[in-house]
Design a protein around this nucleic acid. Sequence first.
DNA 1: TTATCATATGAGCAGATGCTCAGATGATAA
DNA 2: TTATCATCTGAGCATCTGCTCATATGATAA
Lengths: 101, 101
Amino acid sequence: MTPHVPHILDEEQLFNMAELFKAFADSTRIKILYLLFTEEHCVGDIASDVGVSQSAISHQLKLLKQMKLVKSRREGKTIYYGLADDHVKTIINMAKEHLEE
Amino acid sequence: MTPHVPHILDEEQLFNMAELFKAFADSTRIKILYLLFTEEHCVGDIASDVGVSQSAISHQLKLLKQMKLVKSRREGKTIYYGLADDHVKTIINMAKEHLEE
DNA sequence: TTATCATATGAGCAGATGCTCAGATGATAA
DNA sequence: TTATCATCTGAGCATCTGCTCATATGATAA
């Protein structure tokens, strides 16, 4: 048994995997996730850093939250978003390594 | 410096990363890649295993090849496709781990 | 209360995407 | 050569996606 033989995955698991990758498959969302790599940011700051409208960012953050890739925290009027866990970093780092070859 | 602080990535690198993830962000393509995990297959077999038309598979294989995720080898009339390198496996395995939590 | 700030949300639209269909290409065999 | 098999390719189309715009919500301040 080589180290890379996969476990059996059924139709649904492969579908879920495609859904997960869709979250990373857009420039705006990748920029958001990468911005949150080191620390949380509020919506307005994400919008200006990424360079798209607050509304567009808000829509994308909703998607990322549904996918459990980011989490949010309210502080007064402001809502701060951060990465939900370290898997996001791992997955992005793997892709980065692939592209660097 | 923590282990997870990312390197600086410019606009183009983040765009390329999104493009890479797009290759994984579709059920048909994930099924193709997963089918090729252990060994190469010819186009016709991929089509019947994945359950879509030969034409559709051919279009998708072209995409995957442009992304350098698969490579092909001709043997007579038949063309065999296999994974281009182990990064594909690594990236898919990372996603699998994330979903299993 | 009303005003303002920060964010969220629904509708609508333009562009991207994945399929089908028909036909082209390329290799082998008769 | 022609016929057949395996695969590829371009066009067309239905669906999906990411944005904008206008408006709604929720919290704070006056």
